[in-house]
Design a protein around this nucleic acid. Structure first.
Length: 437
RNA sequence: GGAGAGGUGGCGGAGUCCGGUCGAACGCGCCUGAUUCGAAAUCAGGUGUACCUUCACGGGUACCGUGGGUUCGAAUCCCACCCUCUCCGCCA
């Protein structure tokens, strides 16, 4: 949680961040938290003083005492114990209050993050040269483009009907080349990131709620995106960001160990509560998918550069997959609590909407010390005896499979209904084409 | 799932039966200094985390898996929970 100095010195920034993100909390809550924090300090001192007195008293109790002295000593001891207990209880109450208050505040905001609503994102760049309309859109097809669902059904690559019966809406079976494509993309993604120092990690798909909260997600509540497992204190993860970050909870790194880069492979589960019917055709919005996620622990002064690198790697991956995209700087209201700044890659999806639309395909966030503070992930500077500092954490999608498959099918469809496999993926697929049947 | 053993500082490992001198022996590792042309070896000192306090040296409080209890006093006794290991069962 935020320490007293940060809370007071950066009060205005916190308030601004709350407002820009359209949080319910604001100036009133921040000032209240500052007041609560001051109270905890006073109460903490009181507890320490009470304990000190009690310790002194205990030491005196080691000596031999006459019976009546012993009895007086015992009574005084009980009194001191009650005093400590009372002071501790008061403090505990205030601390609980403080924690709840602090948990309701988001991270700070990067000065350049666009302020405003979801739609106020800023387009930073495009993968392809402008095509004449000034849109950065790819050239398009000289035949009528189909959407991925049509394509996949024609080639017998997906089965939503069976999945609906077995598991429910928004589940799917991947069949034939689509199943192989899923595996190919996973391995391709891992191979793309390893040269940058990312260590491949296959993580658990379930995690404890306190870890999930540490990463800044809410495992409970009506609007939660996270599935819970009945009769167990476990949740299905929505991203391996959770298991990768949680891997080093309570860790104190040596400075030389940083940056630590992990590439996590896991299944991801999302309830998609409140997202009914919204841009949700086919594989675009589903309850389960596989994802290779990059996660970085680094020194505070390195996080901006690491964020830029994550974006560069994401671009490299989708360049290699020959999928056109644009890069956007996410607007404040769309950032969520943990992110200081967030960039998305939005792939051009010819079958989406009316004549094609961009759709989110990767996302990379710099969470600065927001998650590290909750998970107590710190590091010790080489040769310095000073206080341990919080690390910064960042995450970025390497390849998120369901959506990568959407983009791949729609962009690489041919007039005859077959799908061209991009050159970089051919070694992983063992074929350069899906179909014809 | 059943039976047993155990969770102590960066690691190993005492202490727990017989509660106070234990934030914790000892060893290893690491840091600093001495010695050396330099190194090894040797010797001396230092070496957990969080919060509070001090310009600083330093001082204070808490923490021996987690939470509760007993007691003037708990790493040490009691209860619950979590986790690990071994054996058995079951299983990909």
């Amino acid at each position: 949680m935020l320490d007293a100095r940060t809370l007071q010195e950066r009060r205005d920034e916190i308030v601004e961040s709350c407002q820009a993100r359209h949080f319910r909390t604001g100036a009133t809550e921040v000032d209240a938290a500052i007041a609560i924090q001051e109270r905890t300090l006073v109460q903490r001192t009181a507890v320490n003083e009470a304990n000190r007195l009690r310790n002194e008293h205990q030491k005196a109790g080691k000596a031999k005492l006459a019976p009546e002295e012993r009895e007086a000593h015992t009574l005084e001891g009980r009194r001191l114990k009650d005093e400590v207990s009372a002071a501790e209880e008061t403090l505990r109450g205030t601390e609980t209050e403080l924690e709840a208050a602090l948990r309701s505040f988001p991270n700070f905001l990067h000065p350049e993050s666009p302020r405003g609503h979801e739609k106020d994102f800023k387009v930073l760049s495009y993968s392809v040269e402008e095509s004449g309309e000034g849109s950065g859109r790819p050239p398009g097809f000289d035949f009528e483009a189909k959407d991925h669902l049509e394509l996949a059904q024609a080639l017998d690559l997906v089965d939503f009907e069976s999945a609906a019966r077995v598991s429910g809406q928004k589940f799917y079976y991947l069949k034939r080349e689509a199943a192989l494509l899923e595996l190919a993309l996973q391995r391709f993604a891992l191979d793309q990131v390893q040269p940058y120092g990312f260590i491949p990690v296959i993580t658990p798909d379930l995690a404890r709620p306190d870890i999930i909260e540490g990463l800044g997600f809410s495992p409970r509540g009506e609007e939660t995106q996270i599935y819970s497992v009945t009769d167990h204190d476990l949740c299905l993860i929505g991203t391996s960001e959770i298991t990768l970050g949680g891997m080093y909870a309570d860790k104190i790194f040596a400075e030389e160990e940083l940056p630590l880069k992990l590439a996590g492979l896991s299944h991801c589960f999302r309830t998609e509560a409140g997202a009914h019917g919204r841009e949700s055709k086919g594989l675009y919005r589903v309850h389960q998918f596989t994802k290779v996620e990059m996660f970085v622990f680094c020194r505070p002064e390195d996080s901006e550069a690491q964020h830029a690198e994550l974006l560069r790697i994401e671009r490299q991956i989708f360049d290699a997959l020959e999928i056109p995209y644009r890069v956007i700087d996410i607007a404040s209201a769309d950032l969520g609590a943990p992110a200081y700044r967030k960039f998305d890659l939005e792939a051009w999806m010819p079958g989406r909407g009316d004549g094609g639309e961009y759709g989110e395909i990767t996302s990379t966030s710099n969470c600065t010390d927001f998650q590290a503070r909750r998970l107590k992930i710190r590091f010790r500077r080489a040769g310095e005896k000073k206080k341990n500092e919080l690390v910064h954490t960042l995450n970025g999608t390497a390849v998120s499979n369901a959506r990568a498959i959407v983009a791949l099918l729609e962009n690489h469809q041919q007039a005859d209904g077959t799908i061209r496999i991009p050159k970089a993926l051919v070694p992983y697929m063992g074929t350069d084409r899906i179909g014809p049947r």
